[in-house]
Amino acid sequence: MLLSTPTSPHAHTPLDTSGLMRLVILATLPGVAALTWFFGWGTIVNIAFASLIALACEAFALYLRGRRVMFYLRDCSALVTAILLGIALPPGSPWWIIAVGIVFAILIAKQLYGGMGYNPFNPAMAGYVVLLISFPLEMTRWLSPLGTFEGSVPGLMEALQLCFGGGFDAHTMATTLDVFKQGAGLMVADVWQQNPQFGRWGGLGWEWVNIGFLAGGCYLLHRGVFTWHAPMSMLIALTAMAAVFYDGGSSASGGSPLMHLLSGATMLGAFFIITDPVSSAVSTRGRLIYGALAGVLVYVIRRWGNYPDAVAFAVLIVNFAAPFIDHYTMPRTYGHNRGGSD
C-alpha cells in the first residue's frame, strides 16, 4: 500500500465568497437549460432582468450606507439571489412582477439586515413569497411545456414581448402539482391520462428541470460548497412523508414519492435554497433537523395547504426556526461538559 506523504507547502485554492457564488451560478446551468428547453426563453429573460435590478438595488443600498460599492457588488451574492428568483418565477412574467420581487428581496430581506452574511431569511424566497401572496394570478400562470400542444414554446423575442409588452398569445396550463391538488377523487392513472402535462414521473418538463438541478447540486456537493446533511435529510423526509400518505391509487392521496421529488421546486429547494450558508442552521445535527423540518413542511403545505407548491413557505419557516435549532444543537466544545456548563 502506498501512503503518499506530500510535504509542505500544502497549497490550497481557497474559495472566497465570489468564487463560491460563481460556482453556484455555474451549477444552476443544467436546470436553467432544461427550463429554457421546455418553457421557452422566459426564464432567461427573467434572470437577465432580475440581475439588472438586483445589482442596481444592491449598489443603491451600499451607496446609501457608505460602503465600498464595487467590492460588495463583486461578491456576486446579489446575482445569485436574482438568478434563484428568476428561476422560481413563471417564465414570461411581466416586468413589474420581477421588479417588485427583487426590490423586496434585496432591499428589505437582505440590506435592511446588514447585507451579505446577516440576512436571517433567504432573500430570493422572501421575494417569491411576497409575490405569491400579493399577485396569486400572475404567479400561478405557467406556460404549457413543450410537447403538450402543437407549435413551439416562446422564442427570445416572444419572451421579451411577454415580459415588457404583454401583447402575445401563449398557452398556459396548470402545473402538475396544481392539477393534483384540484383533481381529488380521480385515480392517479386517470389524472395522468387526461392531462398532457404529466410526463413519465413528475410532470412533463418538470422531471428534467429537477434532474438538472439535482445534477447541479451534486456538482456543488462534490466541490464541497455545502455538506450533504441538509439536502439529504430534506429529500428523505419528503420521500418518507409522501410514502406514508400515498395509497398508490387515488389522486386524493397526494401523489407518489417520485412525483414529489421530481416536480415543483423540490431539487432547487434542496440543493440551492436550504443550503444557503447564511440563513440555515450551522451545526451538523442542526442541519439534519433543519432539512427534515423543511421536507415535512413542504409535504404538509403541498398536500393540505392552499398553495400548490410549498418550497418557498417551508424555507421561510425553517429559516425562522434556524437560530433556535442552532441554540440547542451547539456542538460541545472540547474540554467542556455537556449542556455548556464547565
Partner: peptide, 11 residues
C-alpha cells in the same frame, strides 16, 4: 416576514 411565512399554512 415571519407572518408572511405563516401564511403558507392557510387552508
Amino acid at each position: 416576514l415571519m407572518s408572511l411565512a405563516f401564511m403558507g399554512f392557510a387552508g
